[in-house]
Nucleic acid binder design. Structure first.
Length: 472
RNA sequence: GGUCCCAUCGUCUAGCGGCCUAGGACGCUGGCCUCUCACGCCGGAGACACGGGUUCGAUUCCCGUUGGGACCA
């Protein structure tokens, strides 16, 4: 119905491990920007670091993107399939005298760097090979970009405004390693140019690379794209989010029982806001998202709020969908054997009564277990507190009465309890809690009538009688 | 060490010179509801890093200090 705008953005992860929270945020903001502007979202795999890149990681990233619902219009492209393109551009720069061969070894560079620092000079490349007129035999050179050493390079960032860098601070960066592969800073520039990227939206950690990249665009004869550098996501100790801060990979959130819409909503609100609104559907995010409302300050990832959103989205979710997800978890845990699935309609009823107090799918799965297994283990403390000698006759009487209930539903069960309570002059809790322990093994569960209904007549009576019999 | 960025409750944030005795959300907390736990509802504690300017007036603009972060090495 709408034609595509000329906005073209990309998410360009390195396949060196998991898809982590920071990557998701970058991907999400690019995706939202593309969708908001009817643009094109491109996925590019930056795998020139062949020692660390794996196909397994690529799969993890693609799966993660799909789980989150971040679909791409073009790609995935892989840099390793584009090596000839980089080489051609390197040759051009070399031919035009905008780049030169550098024969310095890492050891030499390191030594000179230390020397410079010891002498109080800035540790930048000394341009030793810049004046070389002939190759050094026996060495394979790297290629360095001949950067400007006067004036300034100004990054006009959509989030931070104009950021000025003194060109003399920038040294001649390596654009092709001695193994013939392009470096990150060079490959991104060539890729973004050849893929017609209009807006580079990426993490703050790349801001310092940007002036060099701008010079590369200029040397290559291209107009640089617009830049937007997103603030970092930090851990609770305000350092860059990493493994020691807990779950950082998308796969971990899947395993923890999160819904994708919860994670997306949470991450969208990290560094971005829209008035006082906290809950956003995907469409609302697309409609409201602009780079102007992205903040500049880094933000700390807060597990509690993410859980709160997950709880919210679990309440909103379709019971059939939840049932399927919880069923999968139960199978994964071996609680349910293959081919022994419960009746789906019944299971949906179970899911419905568990939803309200489940913050994650894992919690829901755990709460479902007593309803599925044949025998339950009673919690010792709960047993001591509620299954006392005086309640044994009550339980037996209740079980007897329940046997006559037909149909075995909430509305039919409730009067039985009310009658018993009135007859004995006790509080409802006096009987409800022991029954809860008898049926679920613990002191926490949905409303007791709902539990009984879903548990079913046979199991309910069996467990109440067993509990009564077990009281000494 | 150099360069760059950033700075409102514990956390995410609203605020784009007067509407602010600073609003919302998570978390924490008091109460209500109640068969447990939750949910829900009502209430509470809780922040403009500091110092200078600019201005009739600064959370908001400028400078510095401090603090944090990132990158390069």
């Amino acid at each position: 119905m709408t034609t595509k705008s000329n906005v073209r953005v990309r998410f360009a992860p390195s396949p060196t491990g998991a898809l982590h929270i920071g990557g998701v945020r970058t991907a999400l903001f690019n995706w939202l920007y593309a969708r908001h502007n009817n643009g094109t979202f491109i996925l590019r795999i930056e795998d020139t670091d062949q020692t660390r890149s794996t196909d397994e990681s690529i799969k993890i990233i693609l799966d993660g993107m799909k789980w989150l619902g971040l679909d791409w219009n073009e790609g995935p492209f892989r840099q390793t399939e584009r090596l000839d393109i980089y080489r051609a551009h390197i040759d051009t720069l070399l031919k035009e005298g905008r780049a030169y061969y550098c024969y310095c070894t890492p050891e030499e560079l390191d030594a000179r760097r230390k020397e410079a620092m010891a002498a109080g000079r800035p540790p930048k490349y000394d341009r030793k090979c810049r004046s070389l007129t002939a190759p050094i035999e026996g060495r394979t050179p790297a290629v360095r970009f001949l950067s400007a050493d006067e004036g300034q390079t100004i990054v006009r960032d959509l989030i931070r405004g104009a950021v000025t860098f003194e060109n003399q601070q920038l040294d001649d960066l390596i654009i092709q390693r001695s193994d013939g592969l392009p470096t990150y800073n060079f490959a991104v520039v060539v890729d973004d140019v050849t893929m017609d990227i209009t807006h580079v939206i990426r993490g703050d950690d790349h801001l310092n690379n940007t002036p060099r990249q701008i010079q590369l665009y200029q040397a290559l004869g291209f107009e640089p794209p617009k830049f937007a550098h997103l603030p970092m996501i930090l851990g609770s100790d305000k350092t860059k989010l990493s493994k020691r801060h807990g779950a950082t990979a998308v796969t971990e959130y899947i395993d923890l029982g999160y819904l994708p819409e919860a994670l997306v909503n949470y991450i969208a609100r990290l560094g971005w806001s829209h008035g006082d609104q906290e809950i956003f559907s995907l469409q609302e995010l697309i409609d409201a998202f602009t780079l102007e409302s992205v903040g500049k300050a880094p933000s700390v990832f807060n597990q509690e709020k993410c859980v709160w959103l997950n709880h919210h989205y679990i309440q909103q979710a379709d019971p059939g969908r939840l049932a399927g997800l919880v069923l999968d978890l139960l199978k994964k845990d071996g609680v349910l054997k293959q081919g022994s699935e419960p009746d789906l309609e019944w299971f949906k009823k179970l899911v419905k009564i568990l939803t309200e107090r489940s913050h994650t799918l894992v919690e829901m799965k755990n709460a479902a277990i007593p309803f599925l297994v044949d025998d339950i283990q009673l919690d010792e403390k709960a047993k001591t507190k509620h299954l006392t000698p005086d309640v044994a006759p009550l339980l037996i009487e209740l079980a007897t009465k329940l046997k006559t209930v037909e149909p075995f539903t909430h509305t039919e069960i409730e009067p039985i309890f009310n009658a018993l309570v009135a007859e004995k002059g006790i509080k409802l809790g006096k009987i409800a809690q022991p029954v809860r322990v008898a049926l679920t093994g613990g002191t926490v569960s949905p409303g007791i009538y709902e539990v009984i209904e879903v548990m079913g007549k046979e199991k309910t009576i069996k467990r109440i009688e067993a509990a009564a019999a077990g009281i000494k």
